[in-house]
């Protein structure tokens, strides 16, 4: 059985800074605007890049889930 007697343990709650939140929202807004314009102007290009990004982030999300099991 492992012992944790001599280890200093501490967990804090994560609070994103306003800059971090703003960055995420700005990136999301850029994506939405690009998508909205692109679907009308260059649909093949936008759907192709959408497929690449969707598959990329699906992989990251799914990989995270894989490591949540025991």
């Amino acid at each position: 059985m492992a012992s944790t007697n001599h280890i200093d343990l501490h967990v804090s709650q994560f609070k994103p800074s306003s800059n971090q939140k703003t960055l995420a929202i700005v990136l999301l807004a850029i994506g939405l605007i690009t998508f909205a314009i692109g679907v009308m102007k260059s649909p093949e290009r936008v759907w192709t890049s959408y497929l690449v990004a969707f598959f990329y982030f699906s992989c990251l999300g799914l990989g995270g889930l894989f490591f949540c099991g025991r």
């Binding site: 995420a24 929202i25 700005v26 990136l27 999301l28 807004a29 850029i30 994506g31 939405l32 605007i33 690009t34 998508f35 692109g38 260059s42 290009r45 936008v46 890049s49 959408y50 690449v52 990004a53 969707f54 990329y56 982030f57 990251l60």
Partner: peptide, 13 residues
């Protein structure tokens, strides 16, 4: 287009 769409997904992420 590629950068913009990827940025959007990064924002959601």
């Amino acid at each position: 287009w590629e950068i913009g769409i990827f940025a959007g997904f990064t924002g959601i992420f």
